[in-house]
Computed example of a mutant assay.
Amino acid sequence: MSLESVRAWFAQYAPDITVEESDKSSATVPLAAAAYGVPPEQIAKTLSLRVGDRVVLVVTSGTARLDNKKARAAFGAKPKMLGVHEVADLTGHEVGGVCPFGLKDPLPIYCDVSLQAFDVVVPAAGSTHSAVRIAPRRMAELVGAEWVDVSEVRAEQAAPQP
Rank of each mutant, 00 (worst) to 15 (best):
S22L: 10
D23A: 09
S25F: 01
S26A: 14
A27Y: 02
V29Q: 06
V29I: 13
V29Y: 03
P30R: 08
P30I: 04
L31S: 15
L31Y: 04
A32G: 15
A34H: 12
A34V: 07
A35F: 05
P40H: 08
Q42W: 01
I43F: 01
I43H: 01
K45Y: 02
T46C: 09
T46P: 00
L47K: 08
L49T: 07
V51L: 10
V51S: 13
D53P: 01
R54Y: 00
R54G: 03
L57V: 07
V58H: 03
V59N: 14
V59E: 12
V59S: 12
S61I: 03
G62Q: 13
G62P: 10
T63D: 12
T63L: 13
L66T: 11
L66C: 07
D67E: 10
K69W: 02
K70L: 14
A71Y: 02
A71D: 09
A73R: 15
F75I: 12
F75A: 12
M81K: 15
M81V: 14
M81H: 11
L82D: 08
G83S: 09
V84P: 10
H85F: 03
E86F: 02
V87Y: 02
V87C: 01
A88Y: 00
A88M: 01
D89K: 10
D89Q: 11
L90P: 06
T91S: 07
T91P: 05
T91I: 06
H93E: 00
H93F: 03
E94M: 03
V95C: 03
V98L: 14
V98S: 06
P100Q: 11
P100S: 10
F101M: 11
G102M: 02
G102I: 04
G102Y: 01
G102A: 11
D105A: 13
D105S: 11
D105P: 00
L107D: 03
P108E: 14
I109F: 00
C111F: 03
V113W: 00
V113Y: 04
S114C: 14
S114P: 09
L115N: 04
L115Q: 11
Q116V: 02
A117C: 08
A117M: 09
D119N: 12
V121Q: 07
P123R: 11
A125V: 00
A125G: 08
T128D: 10
T128A: 07
S130I: 01
S130P: 03
S130Q: 07
A131G: 09
V132G: 10
V132H: 06
V132Q: 08
R133F: 14
R133G: 09
A135C: 07
R137T: 14
R138E: 15
E141I: 03
E141K: 15
L142H: 06
L142P: 03
V143R: 04
V143M: 01
A145V: 01
E146H: 09
E146Y: 02
W147T: 08
